[in-house]
Structure formats: structure tokens, C-alpha cells
């Protein structure tokens, strides 16, 4: 009995390790590539083992591309998207969950419905809208359409629904209103989920490619994922440089992930409906 358990465990571990290796290999390869001289990247002598520690392509990326601008754009837009999305979604969810007003159910249905519409279906009309508003090639165009994240509202609503109604009544008796309720009770009770939702919203915004790619056509408004497409010159793709930009671009998210690992897992589980 115990024997079979052990064997099962070993087999499982091996499978997980293989999966992890498959997943990690591109990352590893990017790292190895980015540390080679451009001339060696595609030559026969470039093997699987790292054999060079050459920072040229990193220096190159920083000096000869607009990486720092893209960083700034990515950080700026992602932060604004995160803060605005989380705050407005929280308030919307609070209203739907706790306040009684005509049209409440309808509002929630609209939120649920918009959850089911794929973003791609809206691209054309949103692009035209942004164009009409004169926002193409500004942060505005990158940010505005990304502010609508129905799943954040839905998750918040579920958590607010679960707060016992006596707490609400205790606050009303203590002389508090809706603002006290939301900011002094409902929000503090849900810091965990707030942190989790903020992180996934941030990661989503940071990694967004398709939409920023459409509306940021000048290098000065590009975010990092879009900017990576620009790292080539007239002689074609420069692999080492592209890889170094990609790694530099992914770093903040990786760091954020490592710092808040537990919260992120939690958030992904909640928002995909495994829990809550």
C-alpha cells in the first residue's frame, strides 16, 4: 500500500518536472540567447549550454531602442488601469450587492453579459471611437477600453454578498452611511481579494499586446510588448536584442509574481471560478 503510494508520488513528480522543464525551456533559451553576441546567436557553435556572458545586447537595447520610454508607458498605463479598474469595479460591485435601487438586477445582467462578449468583437468599434475622440497614440486610447473588466466586478460582488448583513446593520446603527460601509468595513474585510484582483489586473494590462498594438503606432506611446516588435533594423531581426528586451519587459511582472505568488494563485483560482 505504502509502496504503491511512493511509486505514484515518484511518477507524479517526474511528470511535473517534465512539464516544468518544457515550460521553462523557452525562458532559459531566451536568457542564453540574450547573453550571446548577435553574430553567434544563429551560428553552429551556439549550443544549449550558456557559454558567453555578454551584455552587449542589453546595453544596446537600453541605449539604441526606446525601451525606457516603453517602460514608462507600460508602468503608467498599467498602474492607471489597475487603480481605476479596481476602484470603480469595487464601487459598482458594492452598489449591485448592497444597495437597493431600481434597475439593479438589469445592471448586473449587463455586467454579466459584457463578460461574455469577446474583446475582439469590440475592437473595430472601439478603434473608431478612440480615433473619433482623437486619442490614437495617447495613453488615453490604451487605457480607456481596458478599464472594463467585468470579472473584477463579479468577483467583488460575490465577496460583498458573503459579508453578513448584520455587519451592515451594525454600521447603520452606529451612524455610518454607504461610504463608511464600503471603505471602513467592506473593503478592509476584503483586502486579500483586493490585492489579488489588483495583481491580475496589473499583469493583464502589462501583458496586453493586441489593443495597444493597434492604438500605439508611434514609438513614443508604445508599451513594452508592442515595443518589442520594433527591435529590428534594416538588416532584419536581431535575436539577442529582441530577447533581452523581452526579458527586461517581463521582469517587473515576474518580480511582482514572485513577491505576491500566493495572492496571484488565489486570484486566478477565484476568477476562473474554482473557488468563491
Amino acid at each position: 500500500m505504502i509502496q504503491t503510494r511512493k511509486i505514484e508520488n515518484i511518477i507524479l513528480s517526474v511528470i511535473t518536472l517534465c512539464a516544468a522543464a518544457i515550460w521553462v525551456f523557452p525562458l532559459y533559451w531566451a536568457m542564453v540567447t540574450s547573453l550571446r553576441r548577435e553574430s553567434r546567436v544563429v551560428s553552429d557553435s551556439a549550443g544549449l549550454i550558456p557559454d558567453e556572458f555578454n551584455l552587449t545586447s542589453y546595453i544596446d537595447a537600453i541605449l539604441n531602442t526606446r525601451l525606457l520610454t516603453w517602460y514608462w508607458n507600460s508602468i503608467g498605463t498599467s498602474l492607471i488601469i489597475t487603480v481605476v479598474t479596481v476602484v470603480t469595479s469595487m464601487m459598482c460591485a458594492y452598489a449591485i450587492s448592497q444597495m437597493r435601487f431600481p434597475g439593479r438586477r438589469l445592471l448586473y445582467l449587463v455586467v454579466l453579459a459584457s463578460f461574455m462578449i469577446p474583446a475582439q468583437a469590440l475592437v473595430v468599434s472601439q478603434f473608431i471611437l478612440m480615433n473619433d475622440m482623437g486619442l490614437i497614440n495617447t495613453w488615453g486610447a490604451i487605457i480607456l477600453p481596458q478599464l472594463i473588466v467585468p470579472v473584477v466586478i463579479i468577483v467583488y460582488k460575490q465577496f460583498f454578498d458573503a459579508v453578513p448583513k448584520e455587519l451592515r446593520e451594525a454600521v447603520l446603527l452606529d451612524g455610518g452611511g454607504e461610504y463608511t460601509l464600503l471603505f471602513k468595513v467592506y473593503l478592509p474585510l476584503n483586502w486579500g481579494i483586493t490585492a489579488a484582483l489588483s495583481i491580475i489586473t496589473f499583469i493583464g494590462a502589462w501583458n496586453a499586446f493586441f489593443w495597444p498594438f493597434l492604438v500605439a503606432t508611434s514609438e513614443s506611446t508604445m508599451t513594452i510588448p508592442v515595443g518589442i516588435t520594433q527591435v529590428q533594423d534594416t538588416f532584419g531581426v536581431q535575436y539577442a536584442r529582441v530577447m533581452s528586451v523581452a526579458l527586461l519587459g517581463a521582469m517587473p511582472v515576474a518580480v511582482a509574481y514572485l513577491l505576491f505568488q500566493r495572492r496571484v494563485t488565489e486570484a486566478v483560482m477565484i476568477s476562473s471560478g474554482v473557488k468563491g
Binding site: 455587519l167 451594525a170 454600521v171 468595513v185 474585510l189
Partner: peptide, 30 residues
């Protein structure tokens, strides 16, 4: 009249304490 203006205080069956606040802050809330 609003609950808070009536001069009443209520004690609930399930206590309804603010879980994130200390005992002192629970009492000090109002």
C-alpha cells in the same frame, strides 16, 4: 427616522463585530 438617529443600539445574535478591528476599535466605531 434613520436607524442612527433613533437613539437605539442593537446587539445581534451572531454578535456582528467588525472582524478587522480590535475590541477597542469595535467599541469606538460609532
Amino acid at each position: 427616522q434613520e436607524p442612527a438617529r433613533r437613539g437605539v443600539a442593537m446587539v445581534f445574535q451572531n454578535y456582528a463585530l467588525y472582524p478587522h478591528l480590535s475590541v477597542f476599535e469595535n467599541m469606538a466605531f460609532s
